[in-house]
Design a protein around this nucleic acid. Structure first.
Lengths: 224, 224
DNA sequence: ACCGAAAACTGAGAATAACTCGCATCATTG
DNA sequence: CAATGATGCGAGTTATTCTCAGTTTTCGGT
């Protein structure tokens, strides 16, 4: 990621940058991305518009910086779940329940921030890259646990990545865009149940023979 | 969805609207959403900027209209898969392979359009609603098939919705943001395998007893 | 064929918001 | 206590969305 702008060196400027980010977070969450102007952000931060552009090359960069913080924090939260798992060695259902619980808290804790970063903001390539990177970090930790448990299907690394992507999508749907007439907790429980089922296949490649091909609609192909 | 703009009544204006949408689709795909100005769209469409704003209240509305078309088309494609399934009664693995194949084509056919809509569209609440609606339509069709097959776990409707959300997320990741060093077709095959596993639990609630252990080992835990 | 009304089209320019730049002020260092 | 570099400033430039008053085209009725 390029940083074509000055890095704050003195204490004073570090405070300026912090104030700008704080103001940006508040205004973005309150009025949305397009509903917030860089001038308003500078005003609220108590600095001039020129100072803002001294540290952020454009409006998007504010968003990327916020995402950077949020994602780093999120990855750390999830890492704690795996750290505990490393000690207690829980069975798969417990591990998944803890993981989902943790990710659910990340959604419900600051829903407007989460929504801002995932929905309201234009997804710049920088942001997409950063999201994928966080996904991969988490997926690696999960894959390690799956291997330890001897589960996760023929390719635990790949399935771990799919699980992380899926769980995010599912909780986002369940907690931020809940379909009418659905109960959120039941929905979340279903997510846990489903991923437990999905990841319960043994790790042993013996099961990975050549079970599935591309297949069109002929009565061919059989299940595991 | 509000339509605070004139509806085209004469043939001439219907052609104008079509030309504007065609130009918008091309320019958005070539230069991105923010990289395209409404004036350029009007110019390319061969109409004046005023005409554009006669039919679209703002730039976002162009995106919404494009998404509307694309989603309707996509839902129709997927519906065909289920229509075929209604005739041939394929087993779960074949049905899933066909479904994934179909969704994969929707991604690879016009990847730039797909990316445009998924990356930019979430900013508009209208579009989020529209996407969810499409998801639900597809999920309902899938749930019907799951019930027929006596599979899909304790709540086939809910699991079908999760499957549709997950498959979209997975294929998006596999085909538009493929992680370095991964093979796309292998990735797609893994998606099929995973969802086959996830949805293979019998529908009969007898199996839904209390198959999952709960109680965490750590001093966390909250839900359920 | 003609007329009046409604629909469609036009493009200069008002309004808004991102971003720049030359200069003033502050902090640090030798 | 210079001198040098870092930080801060904000009116002004630029780019882009969107409006509106006026013109042209279409169409139904006579």
């Amino acid at each position: 990621m390029l940083t074509p702008r000055k890095q704050p060196r003195q204490q004073r400027s570090r405070e300026t940058v912090a104030a700008i980010l704080e103001a940006a977070a508040q205004l973005f969450q309150r009025h949305g991305y397009t509903g917030t102007t860089t001038n308003k952000i500078a005003e609220r931060a108590g600095v001039s518009i020129g100072s803002l552009y001294q540290y952020f090359p454009n409006k998007d960069a504010l968003l990327v910086a916020l995402a950077e913080h949020y994602l780093a924090e999120s990855v750390q939260q999830v890492a704690q779940v795996f750290a505990r798992a490393g000690e207690h060695r829980p069975p798969l259902p417990v591990l998944l329940a803890d993981l989902v619980e943790c990710v659910a808290v990340l959604h419900t804790d600051r829903p407007r921030l989460h929504r801002l970063l995932f929905d309201q903001a234009p997804r710049t390539p920088d942001l997409v890259t950063r999201f994928r990177q966080a996904e991969q970090q988490i997926a690696q930790a999960l894959a390690r646990e799956l291997r330890r448990l001897g589960t996760g299907g023929p390719d635990p690394e790949l399935n771990a990545l799919l699980a992380v992507q899926g769980i995010e999508a599912h909780l986002h749907g369940a907690l931020l865009d809940l379909p009418a007439g659905r109960d959120a907790t039941a929905h979340v429980r279903a997510v846990v149940r489903l991923w437990q089922q999905a990841l319960s296949a043994p790790c042993d490649p013996a099961e990975a023979h050549r079970s599935l091909g591309q297949a069109s609609s002929g009565p061919n192909r059989r299940s595991r």
